[in-house]
């Protein structure tokens, strides 16, 4: 499986120039107080990972990968592991930059706030990617883009409509006893999200024909 991960990491690495430019731009904007640097993570992760799928689809890698030893299983597993590795690396870069920006802007570093904000970003990024991957494996990148847009639009529209009739503070109050365990609960949810998404993608790819 390592070989498949190396191939995905090589594809991610080929975007280094773009990643570098984005980090510089966001850092400057962060220093000017224009933007929260932690937004780099979701934006960059989603963009880079989708581009690896696009190259795989466009260059017929998926069919070829099946002709390699254990290709059906390993190419999906490798994609998830490469994603997690990339999120870890981008997270570390973002945290360090956030510390530096926070220090330069306010002469102090609010470690807790930065780390919690990063945790939220990682959760959000994984939520989007784990939701997207099975759709991409099923329909391919191009069709999945439209599908994802329609689903997100549907959720926002229906959610917005339903929220008119729900008292959120009531729910928040009734769940307030979970506050101390929030990080643990969210971490467990993240692990479950990745695992379920991986299993669905693996199942889809195991039946896929090219």
């Amino acid at each position: 499986m390592l070989g498949f991960i190396k191939k995905d990491i090589a594809m991610i690495k080929s975007n280094f120039k773009l990643i570098g430019i984005l980090i510089v731009v966001y850092t400057i904007m962060g220093l000017m107080g224009e933007v929260d640097i932690s937004f780099i993570l979701p934006f960059m992760s989603v963009m880079i990972m989708i581009s690896t799928f696009s190259y795989d689809n466009y260059n017929n890698w998926d069919a070829y990968s099946i002709s390699l030893p254990n290709g059906r299983k390993n190419s999906v597993k490798a994609k998830y592991i490469a994603t997690i590795l990339m999120i870890l690396v981008v997270s570390i870069i973002t945290i360090i930059l956030s510390f530096i920006i926070s220090y330069l802007n306010t002469k102090s570093i609010n470690y807790g706030q930065i780390l919690i904000s990063m945790f939220g970003e990682i959760f959000g990024t994984l939520l989007v990617l784990t939701f997207m991957y099975p759709i991409i494996y099923k329909f391919g990148v191009e069709k999945a883009r439209i599908g994802i847009f329609l689903i997100v639009f549907g959720i926002v529209f229906i959610g917005g409509f339903l929220l008119q009739f729900i008292d959120l503070s009531l729910i928040a109050n009734s769940l307030s006893f979970l506050e101390d365990y929030l990080i643990i609960i969210l971490s467990l949810i993240m692990v479950m999200m990745v695992y379920i998404s991986y299993k669905i993608s693996e199942k889809i790819f195991s039946k896929k024909e090219f």
Binding site: K6, K7, N59, A63
Partner: peptide, 16 residues
């Protein structure tokens, strides 16, 4: 059909 992602290099192929 061609099947290597074209942003890779032969070195990348060898490593994988």
């Amino acid at each position: 059909d061609m099947f290597f992602p074209e942003i890779l290099t032969p070195n990348d192929i060898n490593k994988a």
